[in-house]
Design a protein around this nucleic acid. Structure first.
Length: 254
DNA sequence: ATGGTTGATGCTCAA
């Protein structure tokens, strides 16, 4: 199974780009974040014509997640455990070929002084509670998406500059660590030790100067990791005309 | 250098 995750920063602005990427890479499962569209307006038809089933959990303007699958997609569940209907659309789970896939868009946090920073930490805590309530760590589980948190010094372009800054505080890293303590592993790091990024700021020519961070992750349970043959970041997708500010992360499970 | 760019919306906010 080829499983990919990509924060597309508006599926409507990126429809043609995502379609071309799907044709080229033919993922079995593609998890999208920041779709920024209500479900009725999600451009599902062109993907359905390519053989994909589309499950979307979106809202107007902000947030929004989706799972596209060319294998049968079962038991879709929207939101964190105990979520209210009015909550941001940031989580969508579904089972594909026996793998429970959770597509997550973790709150950005705005700044370490912002109330939304506390919301970000709480959201990560509730993601762990959702895993505890709905999954077993012995099963094949993949928690993927934009976590807006970097793990370590190799995941930020200037660790000294960013230590204690948003995306790289001890609190965020600890909250992400508690998600992994459910029984998950960083698939990219399992295969690659060197510095790598998945997001580059549009501002200040971040991509051209390779001033990025690795904040998009594929977290796999032990049994899923044992099946993981490769993990790659498709940096090419960040080039070209009107790209998302994030690159896709792709894993292959045998 | 507290800058800069993009998207959705609507005359700004979020990222």
């Amino acid at each position: 199974m080829k499983l990919a995750t990509w924060n597309v920063n508006s599926i409507r602005a990126r429809e043609a780009l995502v379609l071309a990427w799907v044709r080229r890479h033919e993922p079995d499962v593609l998890c999208l974040q920041e779709t920024k569209v209500v479900d009725d307006d999600f451009p599902a038809e062109p993907f359905q014509r390519l053989g994909y089933t589309v499950a979307a959990a979106g809202q107007r303007t902000y947030n929004g997640v989706a799972i596209l699958s060319r294998r049968p997609l079962r038991d879709p569940v929207v939101g964190l455990v105990g979520a209210r209907p009015t909550e941001d659309k940031r989580l969508l789970a579904a089972t594909v070929d026996g793998v429970r896939v959770l597509c997550a868009y973790v709150p950005n946090g705005k700044s370490t002084e912002s109330p939304s920073f506390r919301d970000k930490l709480a959201w990560l805590g509730r993601l762990r509670e959702t895993l505890d309530a709905s999954c077993r760590p012995e099963a094949d589980v993949a928690v993927v998406g934009d976590f807006n948190v970097a793990f370590d010094e190799r995941d930020v372009w200037d660790p000294e500059r960013f230590r204690g800054q948003l995306f790289f505080t001890d609190e965020e890293r600890a909250a992400l660590g508690r998600v992994l303590e459910f029984g998950l592993f960083d698939a990219y790091r399992h295969h690659h030790a060197e510095r790598a990024f998945t997001w580059w700021d549009y501002r200040g020519a971040g991509f051209e100067r390779d001033l990025g961070m690795r904040i998009d992750h594929v977290l796999l349970s032990a049994s899923a990791l044992a099946r993981c043959r490769s993990a790659t970041i498709d940096v090419e997708a960040r080039r070209g005309e009107r790209p998302s500010d994030h690159a896709p992360v792709v894993v292959e499970l045998e």
